[in-house]
């Protein structure tokens, strides 16, 4: 049913730390593995060993180069590389849900997870059109729409140890750049993290109100200019001779 719930009890989602993500793709493949074996149809691959291999993925890692604007302090700022994982942001105002003609797309009232009920999906693709983030992919083999499930079949799963009831991508991320939790609860760890690190929305102007947040990279290349640090290199000796002399004195002190 494609009417969005007026409010959801929880806002489960991911917080992704762009300051920490090393772009290793672990989350991408872990997601592929879990969701191929679990929720709904497998994520298929076409021409898997051929000339033009392509397949369904629910999470993909982009990378960008950002060149800071030159300033008097930094006339030639170095460019930065930023790895950028992207999966469904489980938007509060999810356009992908309301456009769906069959009701296959829906947002869960209890936790806000946006899902596709594959049994109802006609594969018209409209929801993917409506998603600004490219978070939905039509599986070529099954002809139904695929998207991040927030691992709904893990996070409540009683067959999994408590500690592992988190999304597959979160559990696997070697750098700990992915955090999972209730962004509706201001006291949750994720909400605190977002507050501390000025977590941001992607394409806020699209009005989708994403639940997932991104932590911006910390300022880079801002080592203080040498003069600030100069005291730490105050010479004790200019030449080896002087150095030996200094040694003698210095050794007395220990």
């Amino acid at each position: 049913m494609t009417q969005l719930p007026t409010k959801t009890d929880k806002k489960l989602g991911l917080v992704i730390d762009l300051d920490t993500c090393v772009g290793c793709h672990a989350c991408v493949i872990s997601c592929k593995g879990w969701n191929t074996e679990n929720y709904g149809a497998p994520l298929s691959d076409q021409d898997a060993y051929g000339e033009n291999p392509t397949g369904t993925f629910l999470n993909r890692v982009h990378s960008y180069e950002v060149t800071p604007l030159a300033s008097s302090a930094k006339p030639h700022p170095a460019a930065q590389t930023i790895h950028f994982p992207k999966s469904c942001l489980h938007c509060e105002d999810a356009p992908c849900v309301t456009v769906c003609p069959t009701g296959a797309s829906y947002k869960r009232a209890e936790d806000g997870i946006v899902l596709v009920n594959e049994a109802d999906c006609i594969g018209c693709g409209l929801c993917a059109w409506a998603c600004p983030y490219g978070a939905r992919e039509l599986d070529q083999d099954e002809g139904v729409m695929k998207k991040c499930t927030l691992c709904v079949d893990r996070i409540y799963n009683e067959n999994i140890p408590e500690i592992d009831r988190v999304p597959s991508c979160v559990r696997t991320c070697p750098a700990g750049a992915r955090h999972f939790g209730d962004l509706g609860d201001p006291d949750s760890d994720v909400s605190k993290l977002v507050a501390e690190r000025d977590g941001m929305d992607l394409m806020p102007e699209q009005g989708t109100k994403p639940v997932n947040k991104y932590l911006p990279p910390r300022p880079k290349d801002d080592l203080p200019e040498f003069d600030v640090l100069a005291p730490y290199l105050e010479p004790v000796a200019e030449n080896p001779g002087g150095f030996i002399g200094w040694l003698d004195k210095a050794l007395e002190k220990i």
């Binding site: 762009l18 991408v28 993925f57 993909r60 890692v61 982009h62 990378s63 960008y64 180069e65 950002v66 060149t67 800071p68 604007l69 700022p77 930065q80 590389t81 930023i82 950028f84 992207k86 941001m200 929305d201 992607l202 991104y214 911006p216 990279p217």
Partner: peptide, 15 residues
Amino acid sequence: TGLGAIGQVKAFEPP
């Protein structure tokens, strides 16, 4: 990307 605050953004390696 939300990276505009840092500077000019250019796509690098695709996923």
